[in-house]
Structure formats: structure tokens, C-alpha cells
Amino acid sequence: MAFFRFLWKNSIYLLVNIIILLLGAYLIKSGTCLDVNSSDQSNSTISISIGTSLIAASIVMFLDLFRQLSISRIFAQLQNIVYDAGLQHIYKKRDIDKYDDLVSEMSSSLDIVGYSLGAFFESYSDILQVKTNKNPVNLRIMLVDPDSLFSKNRAQNELKSEGAFREKITTMLRFFKGNSKVEIRFFHSPISSMIFRIDKVMFVGPHFYKKQSKATTTMEIKQGHWLFEEYQQEFERMWADASPVDDTKMGL
């Protein structure tokens, strides 16, 4: 269907090309029919030369048409992959400088899910505390239950001690304790992706086996596109199944 739509869109170009091809064939045929031993020999040569040139030009035009078709297909794929999905950038690592400006300029809300979010807390705990105290900014932080096997196994996969995540999470809980703008919940299943949304910009990425999260591929996606909505819905589903933190269990 895409092929026929392309031809219809370029129907005038195609029609002109066919006319040139037929004209070239006609001139060649006319030239070969002339008596080469007569005074028409020069006309025959001219006719064949022009006809040959027209056919050559027509072939070039046909090749250019198919080149355009190939390019249009590539752009159609890119539009689906990049534009329609809302994909803005792909980074080789999770720890990127762009977070700094987005967090500093944040005006509405932040959602994030991870296993320990140690690097996130170390980098932005102070500014988030200030923003939530002085601005109408709300934070939803979701962490895999540090006492679950999922969390312990992930810590080992990242070559960390079994209790490394619990220690970092406890520090975070104590820091934000009493802040009504910050809600922290525990998720009781493994997570396949990191989701980090700052207002209208979202960063997502996989959790690779035996590779630290901060060194893992990350995609930046924009609100208003289907990929953003897909991950936002995933966060909402997980958030609904997550449970509030038991302060007593965490020793708070």
C-alpha cells in the first residue's frame, strides 16, 4: 500500500517520465527505419542520438524515483520510531548532566522508581528538600523493598553487598521523614526498567544483568507521545500496587 501511495503522490513525475521514455523509443525506431544510404542518414543519426539520450534520461529519472521511495520508507520508519514515540535522545549511561537543569527548574512533580536510587539521592536530596518546602512540587519515590530477595539479588548482580540497598534507602527515608510533599513506597516485585519523570520530560532505561544502573543505557522521551504515556501508565500501575513504608520495620 505504501508503494502505491508513493506512486500516486508522484504520479505527474511518473507520467512525464513515461512520456520521455516512449518519445525516446519512438525516435530510435524512426531513426532505424530511415534509409541510411539516402540523404536521410544524418536525420537518422540525430533521431537515434536524441532517442538514446531521452531513454537514458528516463532511466535516470526512474532510478531517482526509486531512490526517493527508499528514502521515504526510511523517513517513515524514523517518524514512527523517533517522532511518534517521542524519543528525544539516547544516552550511553544513566548518570547524565541534563538532570541537573531539569531538577533545578522543576515546577510541578517528579516520579522515580529504582532499586536504591543512591546516586539520585546523593545528587539532589538538598535541592529537592528545598523545592518541596518552598514550592508546590510533589515527589513520588518508589523503591523495591530492600528486604526482598529481588533487591538483595540485584545488589549482588551489581557486585554490592546484600545490605547495600537497605542502607541507602534508610538514609533517604530519614532525610525526607516528615516532608508531606514526598511520598515513598515499596514495590514488592522486581523492576525491569528505571522510570524517572521530571515534569514533562521522562528518562527510562533497562536494568542490565550484572551492570550498575548508573552505567546503563537511558532514553529521553517527551510528554504528549505514546512512549511517554506507556511508561507513565506503567509507573501508575506499579505505584498502585506498592505499599507505604513501615517505619518500624525500617528502624525509623
Rank of each mutant, 00 (worst) to 15 (best):
Y26R: 11
L27E: 12
I28R: 13
I28H: 13
K29I: 10
K29T: 09
S30D: 07
S30V: 14
G31R: 02
C33P: 03
L34T: 08
D35Y: 13
D35W: 15
N37Y: 14
N37E: 05
S39Q: 12
S39N: 07
D40C: 15
D40A: 15
D40V: 15
N43E: 01
N43G: 02
N43Y: 13
N43H: 14
T45D: 08
T45V: 08
I46Q: 15
I46P: 02
I48W: 10
S49D: 08
I50V: 14
G51T: 10
G51W: 12
T52K: 02
S53M: 04
S53Y: 05
L54M: 01
A57C: 07
A57R: 11
S58Q: 11
I59S: 04
I59M: 15
V60Q: 01
M61P: 05
M61A: 14
L63Y: 15
L65Q: 08
L65A: 15
F66D: 00
F66K: 07
Q68W: 14
Q68M: 05
L69Q: 03
L69A: 14
L69I: 00
S70G: 07
S70A: 10
I71S: 01
R73F: 11
R73K: 10
A76F: 00
Q77C: 06
Q77A: 13
N80R: 04
N80K: 03
N80L: 09
N80T: 07
Y83V: 03
Y83M: 02
Y83E: 02
Y83T: 05
D84I: 06
A85Q: 05
A85H: 01
A85P: 00
G86A: 01
Q88M: 10
Y91Q: 07
K92W: 15
K93N: 14
K93C: 03
D95K: 10
D95W: 06
I96A: 02
I96N: 05
D97V: 08
K98C: 01
K98S: 09
Y99P: 10
Y99G: 01
D101T: 12
L102G: 01
L102I: 00
V103E: 05
V103P: 09
V103Q: 12
V103N: 02
V103A: 07
S104C: 05
E105I: 11
E105D: 15
S108T: 01
S109Y: 11
L110C: 10
L110M: 11
G114P: 02
G114T: 01
L117V: 00
G118Q: 09
A119M: 02
F120I: 08
F121K: 05
E122V: 04
E122N: 08
S123I: 07
S123D: 14
Y124P: 10
S125C: 04
I127R: 11
Q129G: 06
V130H: 08
K131S: 06
K131Q: 00
N133W: 10
K134N: 06
K134M: 13
